[in-house]
């Protein structure tokens, strides 16, 4: 299990990030004393550090330089500063990546994964094949493959992406907006009508697998999955 250290002075953001990352199977450590960030780092030896720039006492750049004297672990800056200069400074002070506030969980997770992959290589990458599961239905995200018991079905990239979101959210209502946003790729995107078509296709594929899952439309809100017993 990878350990992530969060250095962020906003308690809310710290808590939310901690919850989210733990949900995705990371161990988290927070530094609450901003005069002793290095001590916490040396004691806990995290795999990745999320570091805010504006901190009480010393700023993030300072701590980054301090950490760099002892370790080469990936350090990802998180900051509200949006200037080019700040990003340059972050990288020049030893940071590996930069996330601008306001950010989304997806970005944080993706960047953490990529840093872990890069820094710790195969070992982490192998672990990383993402499988989403709901009521026994498995989706192998990287292979666009849907499985239920021994049956397999190939999906298109867009279908896989849609189903990934739906399976992840399960019974929670998933809005059409979210589905459209997740499948949006530069100027190739799914509009309202195409989304209907895709959902119909996904329902058909689930039926063909005899999967005990149905995609239900929620009027005016979106879709939700329902497990049939």
């Amino acid at each position: 299990m990878n350990k992530i250290m969060i250095v962020e002075d906003s308690e809310d953001i710290r808590g939310l990030l901690q919850n989210y990352l733990e949900k995705y199977g990371y161990q988290t450590v927070v530094a609450a004393d901003f005069t002793a960030v290095l001590d916490v780092f040396l004691r806990e030896k995290p795999d990745v550090v999320l570091l805010d720039i504006n901190l009480p006492a010393y700023d993030g750049y300072y701590w980054c330089r301090q950490i760099r004297q002892h370790s080469t672990s990936p350090i990802i800056f998180i900051s509200a500063r949006s200037g080019e200069m700040d990003q340059v400074m972050a990288i020049e002070n030893g940071g590996d990546d930069y996330i601008e506030k306001p950010f989304s969980y997806d970005i944080v997770l993706a960047k953490i994964k990529s840093q872990i992959r890069r820094a710790y290589g195969e070992y982490a990458a192998k672990q990383g094949e993402k499988v989403v599961e709901y009521a026994g239905v498995q989706l192998f995200v990287e292979r666009f493959e849907l499985r239920f018991q021994d049956e397999k079905s190939e999906l298109s990239k867009k279908e896989s992406k849609l189903l990934e979101v739906l399976l992840e959210r399960g019974e929670k209502v998933t809005s059409r907006d979210r589905l459209m946003e997740k499948t949006w790729d530069t100027d190739i995107f799914i509009d309202d009508n195409t989304l209907n078509v895709y959902i119909t296709r996904l329902r058909k594929k689930l039926r063909e697998l005899n999967a005990p899952v149905s995609i239900e439309a929620v009027r005016g809100e979106g879709y939700q999955l329902r497990a049939q017993s």
Partner: peptide, 25 residues
């Protein structure tokens, strides 16, 4: 000032990111 406001905005964003009900939309 803008940066200061961005932090609470991030918090709001994170809190409601996973919610899809009309209110949250």
């Amino acid at each position: 000032w803008v940066h200061q406001v961005k932090t609470p905005l991030s918090v709001i964003n994170l809190i409601i990111q996973e919610e899809d009900e009309p209110v949250f939309e």
